[in-house]
Design a protein around this nucleic acid. Sequence first.
RNA 1: GGCCCUAUCGUCUAGAGGCCUAGGACGCCGGCCUCUCACGCCGGUAACACGGGUUCAAAUCCCGUUGGGGCUACCA
Length: 500
Amino acid sequence: MKTRVRFAPSPTGRLHVGNVRTALFNWLLARKTGGTFILRIEDTDADRSEAEYEKELIEDLKWLGLDWDEGLEKGGEFGPYRQTDRFDLYRKEAGRLLENGDAYYCFCSQERLDAERKEQQEKGLPVMYAGHCRDLSQDETKTRIEKGEKPTLRLKIREGAISFTDLVFGSVTVDLTEIGDFVLLRSDGTSQYNFACVVDDALMEVTHVIRGEGHLTNTFRQVLLYEYLGLPLPRFAHLSTILGPDGSKLSKRHGATSVGEFRERGYLPDALINYLSLLGWTPPESAGEVLSVKEIIDSFDLGRVNRSPATFDIAKLNFINRSHLKKLTPEVLADKVIPFLAAEGIMPAVIDGRVREWVSQVVEILGKYADTLGDFPGLVQDLLQFEPEESLADPEVQQIINEPESRVVIRAFEKNLLEDPSPVVDFEVYKGAVVKIMKEQGIKGKSLFRPLRVALTAKASGPELEKIIDVVEQAAELELPAPAISVRARVSAVAARLER
RNA sequence: GGCCCUAUCGUCUAGAGGCCUAGGACGCCGGCCUCUCACGCCGGUAACACGGGUUCAAAUCCCGUUGGGGCUACCA
C-alpha cells in the first residue's frame, strides 16, 4: 500500500521548529517511500486561528522545501483540506455514532462543568466528565433540542482497556475508566479536535500518523473512535518534544523558535532541516552529521527515531549552518548575503554586476568567520571600516606601533605606495611595495606584517592581508552608501598619526 | 491528584545481556599551521539519575524513588 502521511498544523501562530520537525519527518517518510505528503489545516478553533498565519505557514514550508503533493493550494481527491470546510463530513460521521448508540447529547452548562472540575481537582479526584446526560431518554433529548437548547455531542466510552503500538514509543495501554465521555461536536455544531482528526485521517486514507508526543494520550481516544466508526486504523508514530536549554518546552523566552525568525537571522533551510533531523534521529554512522536533504531522505528510517525529548542547541545548529554555508560557491553565497547587506544599509538596494562580483570576493574571504548569513553585515562592516583615531587606541595596536621597526615599515610602505605610478593599489602594487621594504630594510616576518596590517586596517587582527588588499581598494571605487577609504589614504592616515 | 510517556558526557546521540576500560558529533580546553584573528588538522576533558532485584554476566530486563514532558477543555 502506498504511504500517505500528512502535516496538519493549526494556524494559531508562527510555524514553530517543533512543528517543522513533525512536518519534516512526515515529508521524509513520504519522499523515502515514494508516498504522498498531504497538507491539511486544523482550524476548528475559530478564536485562535488566523488566515494570516496560514499564509505565513505555507510560505515557511515552501522556503524549507517541504513540498506537499496534496492539500492546500494543490487540491486532491480527498478534499477539502481545511477543517472548517469539512463540518458536514464530521456531522455525518457523528450521525452514525448517534444511531449506533455510541454517542449522546449533553446539555450540561459550561458553569456546571467548570464547577464540577474544580471540585474534583480540590478533592484530588480524577478529573473527568461524570456522564450526567448519558442516560437521558430520547424523548427528553428531543424536546430539549426543540425548545432551543444547544447540546454538545459526547462519545460514550465503553468499558475495558485500549492499547495500540506506536512506531516509536512501542506498545501503550490505558484503562478506559481513566477517560471521560469527551465532546465530539461542540454546541455550535463544530467539531472538536480528536473527532475531526480521526474523520479526516480515515477519509483521507492516511496510513501513518506522525505527530508530536503531546498527542500520544489523545491517541487512546482516537483509536476508540476508529473502533466505533469501523474504520481501519493507521500506524501511529509520536515524536518527542523539543526542549529549551532550561529543560522546559522550547518557547519564545528561549529565543528564536519560529521558522520565520531563523530565516530572518540567516539560517539556510537545508541546515535547519539537517539540524532538526538530528533531533531524535540518528543517521547511519558512516554518513556523518552534516547532510544534504537528499542524503537525509536516503538514510531516513522511522525505526531509528528515539523516544526521549531533545534540547534545542543553538551552538550545534550554528555548526551545521556554518558547514552548509561552506559548501556554497562564492557566487551563490553572495546572492544570499546581498539582501542582508542591503537591509543593514551597507549595500545599495539595487546591485550592479561590479558590486555583485565584489561581494562574491568578500564573502569568500569572510565566509570562515560566519555562522549565519546574518553575520555578514557585521563582518563586511569590519572590513570596510577604517577609523584610525579609535582603533589605534587599542592596546594591541599600540604595542605594534610603539616598535621602532614598525614605524620604519609603515613610513616606508607609505613612501613606496606613493611613488608607485599606478592609480589603483592592487595586489601587484602591494607586493612590490612590500618586497622593497624587505630588500631595503631587511625586515620580514612578524615585524613586517604586523605593522602592515595596522597600516592597512588600523586593527591588530583580521583576514589574510594578501586577500583583503584588492577588495579594500575596490570598495573605495564602488559607490557604497558609506564611502570606503582607499589603500593609500589608509596608509597615509596611519603614517600621519605616527608623529604624535 | 489520576493516567500515559521518558531518563547515557554541558548538548544531540550510539548502545536491542557478554564486542563497553561506554563509541561518535557539537561545545569547551590544549597543540600544530600562521603576520594576527579565524579556518583546517591533531589531541584532551566529560556520562550510564538513585535504590533494590533477575542473571555466571546489566547502560541494556523487572520493581521502586527522584527528575522531566504530556493528557486529564465545548484548545490543537
